[in-house]
C-alpha cells in the first residue's frame, strides 16, 4: 500500500520557501556585504612656480596717455594662476615655497621695472606722435596700432602660459608612462587629445603621427589615460584652449 508519508506531509512548500529565503539572504550578503568597488586615492600633487607668470604684468601697463583706454581685448586679462596650485603642507615644501615666493617677488620687481621703462617709452612716443601730427584721424590710427600691440603682448603671454601647462601635462604623462624594453629612445609620438574642463580625457586619443614603435605608442597611450585628470590652468578662459591639445611625446626612459 502506497501512502503519503505522514511525517512529511505538507512540508514541501515550507521547505521550498525556506530554501529560497536562504538563497535570497546569501545573495543580499554578497551584494551589500562585500565591497565590490575599491577606490584608490591618488597622491597629492603640488606645483611650484619659480617666477611670476607673464600675464600678470601685461594687465598693469594700461597706457597712462591721455588717450581713451585701448581695445577691450586687453581689459579681460587672465588672473594670476600662481595662487591656485600649492596645497601640500609639508615643511620641506614650505621651505621650497618660501624660496619660490622670494624668487617671485624679485621677478615681480624686475617686471615692474621693465614695465615702467616700457610705459615711459610708450609715453614719450605718444607725445612725440601727438606733437608731430595734430590730425584726429591719424591719432586714431595710432591708438589702434597701440591697442594692437598690447593685444599682441597679451597673446604672447597667453601662449607662454599654454606652453607652461603643456609642459606640465607632458611631464605628468611621462611620469605615468613605462616605456617597454626595446623601444628606440627619442622617437616622437604626436597625438591630439580632447580634454574636458575637469581634466579628464575624452576617448579616443587621436594619433596624428605614430612614432613607429607600436608597443611604445601603446605604453604612452596608457600613460595618458593614467594621467587623468591632466593639470589645467585655473582660468576657464585659458582652459578653453586645452579642449583639443596637440602633444608631442618623446619616448624616453
Amino acid at each position: 500500500m502506497i501512502q503519503s508519508f505522514p511525517a512529511e506531509r505538507g512540508l514541501r512548500p515550507w521547505a521550498w520557501m525556506l530554501a529560497i529565503a536562504v538563497h535570497g539572504a546569501f545573495l543580499m550578503v554578497l551584494v551589500f556585504g562585500v565591497a565590490w568597488r575599491h577606490t584608490v586615492t591618488p597622491p597629492m600633487e603640488a606645483e611650484l612656480w619659480a617666477d611670476l607668470p607673464a600675464p600678470a604684468t601685461v594687465t598693469k601697463p594700461v597706457p597712462p596717455t591721455p588717450l581713451p583706454p585701448p581695445a577691450p581685448s586687453v581689459a579681460a586679462p587672465a588672473p594670476a594662476p600662481a595662487q591656485a596650485p600649492p596645497q601640500a603642507a609639508d615643511i620641506a615644501l614650505k621651505k621650497q615655497q618660501e624660496a619660490a615666493e622670494e624668487a617671485r617677488r624679485q621677478a615681480l620687481k624686475q617686471r615692474e621695472r621693465e614695465v615702467a621703462e616700457q610705459i615711459r617709452q610708450q609715453r614719450t612716443a605718444a607725445l612725440r606722435e601727438q606733437e608731430q601730427d595734430e590730425a584726429r584721424h591719424e591719432a586714431n590710427e595710432e591708438r589702434r596700432k597701440q591697442a594692437a600691440q598690447i593685444a599682441q603682448a597679451a597673446q604672447q603671454a597667453r601662449a607662454a602660459m599654454i606652453d607652461r601647462y603643456k609642459l606640465a601635462i607632458i611631464n605628468k604623462i611621462r611620469a605615468n608612462t613605462e616605456v617597454p624594453e626595446g623601444v628606440a629612445n627619442g622617437v616622437t609620438l604626436e597625438v591630439d587629445i580632447t580634454v574636458l574642463p575637469t581634466g579628464e580625457i575624452l576617448m579616443p586619443v587621436k594619433i596624428v603621427r605614430p612614432s613607429g614603435s607600436l608597443p611604445g605608442d601603446q605604453a604612452v597611450l596608457r600613460g595618458i589615460m593614467r594621467s587623468q585628470p591632466l593639470p589645467l590652468p585655473g582660468d576657464p578662459e585659458l582652459r578653453r584652449d586645452f579642449r583639443t591639445t596637440h602633444l608631442q611625446l618623446k619616448h624616453e626612459k
Binding site: V31, W36, R37, T39, V40, P42, E200
Partner: peptide, 9 residues
C-alpha cells in the same frame, strides 16, 4: 577624483 576598479557580482 578617485580611480575605481569595478567588478560587481
Amino acid at each position: 577624483m578617485n580611480v575605481t576598479t569595478d567588478i560587481s557580482l
